[in-house]
Computed example of a mutant assay.
Amino acid sequence: MPKAVRVRQTGGPEALELVDVDVPAPGEGEIAVDVQAAGVNYIDTYHRSGMYPMETPFGIGLEGAGVVTAVGSGVTDHAVGDRVSWYSVQGSYAEKLVLPAASAIPVPDGVPADTAAALLLQGVTAHYLVTSTYAVQEGDPILVHAAAGGVGLLLVQLAKARGARVLATVSTPEKEELAREAGADEVVRYDNFEQAANEFTNGEGMAAVYDGVGKTTFDGSLASVRRRGFLVLFGASSGAVPPVDPQRLNAQGSIYLTRPTSRDYSSPEEVRWRTSELFDAVLAGKLSVRIGGRYPLSEARKAHEDLQGRRTTGKLLLIP
């Protein structure tokens, strides 16, 4: 029988169990795929821990790439043998998967399956952050936290492609090197980023701060934003941010604070636009996708431990 990772009771990484599963034939509007790679994302840890409540038991993982093995009735956009990817299908930590055909995105020739699986969720996130949440302009000073992570490396590259000046935060010399390779203009540690942001902008503050760290960086991030600038809180790897008094936004200079999520930036038209631009950039050699670790399905727990322990760079994949 095919195997998949399931969560019977929410909790720590030990809640991830590799089990045998029945995979039904695809129904109307569905396709079946052999999963070649599944992406590991921070949102998976929120599901596993119960931070984002889900009815148990449940399959975990949202993202992957593979080959179509069967199509259900009414499916005309995909055929057996097609290479596809997806980033919003629960239960993607699996050897085989049935998913809505509408959620499957064709993978262009020249893009390997592992690159496709590593790119979509974090790539679409980085894309909407710099094009739609705050549309980065030529010359904008931008602060990117956790710049050597999966989203961070893509954010730096996409912001630079739009002409931004990027200040990046990282925790180690190895991560600093990766952030600089991605194009960051300056790279600093977390303990002095607020002062660095002030110096980087000659006291004016950042046009936008992209903060996926949360609790430990929020106050400094807020203090680093210029008048009428944007604080984009898109994650909480260090923990949830406590309730915020709106008067703090007033005092800092009419700051815009937003907490975006991909479902609000993922209409069918937007998905086509965003994924097309991302794949085109990869094929043109203008966007590098770093895969920081590959784990067998049986080591999903270790992948989560490494991700939450901030011992990783780039994207983590599970390989069935």
Rank of each mutant, 00 (worst) to 15 (best):
V5P: 13
R6G: 12
R6K: 13
Q9E: 15
T10I: 06
G11E: 15
G12C: 07
G12S: 13
P13V: 06
D20C: 11
A25F: 08
E30N: 02
D34Q: 10
V35Q: 07
V40H: 00
Y42S: 06
Y42H: 13
F58M: 09
G61Y: 02
L62V: 07
E63C: 00
A65T: 07
A65M: 03
V68N: 09
V71F: 02
G72S: 01
G81T: 08
G81K: 00
S85C: 13
Q90V: 00
S92C: 05
S92N: 08
L97W: 04
A101Y: 04
V107H: 09
V107F: 06
P108Y: 15
D109C: 02
G110F: 11
G110M: 06
A113T: 14
D114N: 15
L120C: 01
G123Y: 12
V124I: 14
L129C: 11
V130P: 01
E138V: 07
G139H: 03
D140R: 08
L143P: 05
H145G: 04
G149P: 04
L153Q: 14
L155F: 05
G163S: 06
R165D: 04
V170R: 06
P173D: 10
E186N: 03
V188G: 06
E194V: 13
A196S: 08
N202C: 05
E204M: 01
G212H: 00
V213H: 02
T217G: 00
F218K: 08
G220C: 11
A223K: 12
A223D: 14
A223G: 12
S224A: 15
S224G: 11
R226K: 15
L231P: 01
L233W: 01
F234G: 09
A236D: 09
S237Q: 09
V244N: 10
D245N: 15
P246M: 10
Q247R: 14
Q247Y: 13
A251W: 09
A251H: 04
S254L: 12
I255L: 13
I255Q: 04
Y256I: 13
R263S: 10
S266W: 07
R274H: 15
E277Q: 15
A281W: 08
L283R: 14
K286G: 12
L287A: 00
V289P: 08
G292V: 06
R294D: 10
Y295Q: 02
S298V: 00
E299P: 05
D306I: 01
L307Y: 03
T312L: 02
L317H: 12
L318Q: 11
I319Q: 14
